[in-house]
Simulated scan of single mutants.
Amino acid sequence: MTDDEIIDVCRRIAQERQAPPPAPPEAVAEAERVIGFAFPALLRRLYTEVSNGGFGPIDGVPPVDVGSWQEHIAVPYENGPDPSGRIPAGVVPLYDWGCTMWSMIDFRDPDGAMWSNADGDCWRQGITFGQWLVAATDGKLRFAWPDGVPPESEWHRPNAPAGQQES
């Protein structure tokens, strides 16, 4: 699917979800200033042409200038990238799966390589932001565990009682 086709699909979904109007270019520029890297082209277009958040899986990605963006992205980056060194500079949280699990996008890559983060560990997903969005719009996107296998824990046991197992 081309970027223009992805934009069209995301625009339709944003309208169905009654997502907010597009972000002002100044909000994107301020986010880039805080992060220290330019947005990947497709992500920039979605924020400035489609909606200030709300596109992507389930309830969508956060807006660039308020709420979740400020809490999870802007505030940490104001102090520099992850001080633990687990998350490379320019790899930015994009979608909160809950339970300290995030899909992240690499601002250093023009195609927006996608990463996963869970419990402080970070790894490449092996797909681009465009591929991630296509999977989301097709209803096939799931959290990307390393090797496709979640760790053994109370929350991730294959036979966990209903309501305790991650999707």
Rank of each mutant, 00 (worst) to 15 (best):
P25M: 02
R108K: 14
D3P: 06
W123I: 01
F107M: 01
G54S: 03
V64N: 11
A144K: 08
W97T: 01
S68V: 14
R86A: 14
G90Y: 14
R142T: 09
G56S: 02
G120F: 05
W155S: 09
D111Q: 13
F143A: 01
D138V: 08
T48K: 14
A14V: 00
A23R: 01
M1D: 04
G130T: 03
D121N: 06
T128K: 06
H72E: 07
Q18Y: 00
D65T: 07
P25I: 01
I58L: 13
G163W: 09
D109G: 04
N117H: 11
E71W: 09
R44D: 13
D111C: 08
P62C: 08
R12D: 13
I73T: 03
N159S: 11
C10D: 12
G139E: 03
V34C: 12
E30I: 06
E5T: 15
D109L: 07
C10F: 11
A162N: 10
A89F: 14
I7A: 05
I105F: 04
G112C: 09
M101V: 04
V64Q: 10
C99V: 10
R124A: 06
E5F: 13
L43A: 12
F129D: 06
P81S: 13
R86H: 09
V64L: 14
C122K: 10
G120Y: 09
E78R: 15
L42F: 04
A38D: 15
R17Y: 00
I105N: 03
T100D: 12
V9N: 12
L43R: 10
L42V: 04
W155V: 07
E16M: 08
Q164T: 11
V149G: 00
E154P: 04
A38E: 15
I7D: 03
A135T: 05
Q70N: 10
C10A: 15
I73D: 02
W155H: 08
Q164P: 09
W155P: 06
A23H: 01
D4R: 14
C122N: 04
N159Y: 07
L46V: 13
L141C: 01
V75S: 13
R11E: 15
I7P: 04
Q165A: 12
V34T: 15
C10V: 14
I7T: 05
M114A: 08
Q125S: 14
G98M: 06
P57V: 12
R11Y: 13
E154Q: 13
N159T: 13
P158R: 05
T48C: 15
P62Q: 09
G126M: 07
D138T: 04
A162T: 11
V91N: 11
L133Q: 02
A136L: 06
D8H: 05
I58H: 13
D59H: 00
E49P: 08
A19Q: 03
R108H: 12
D96A: 05
A23G: 11
V75G: 11
A23W: 02
Y47D: 15
T128A: 04
F129P: 06
P62F: 09
V61G: 01
W102R: 07
D96L: 02
F143R: 00
T2C: 01
I58N: 11
P22E: 10
W132F: 09
G56H: 00
V50I: 12
G139R: 00
L141I: 01
I6F: 06
V91R: 09
G54W: 00
E32N: 02
D106M: 10
I35N: 14
S51Q: 02
D8E: 08
N117R: 05
A19V: 00
V91Y: 07
D3W: 08
Q15P: 00
E32W: 02
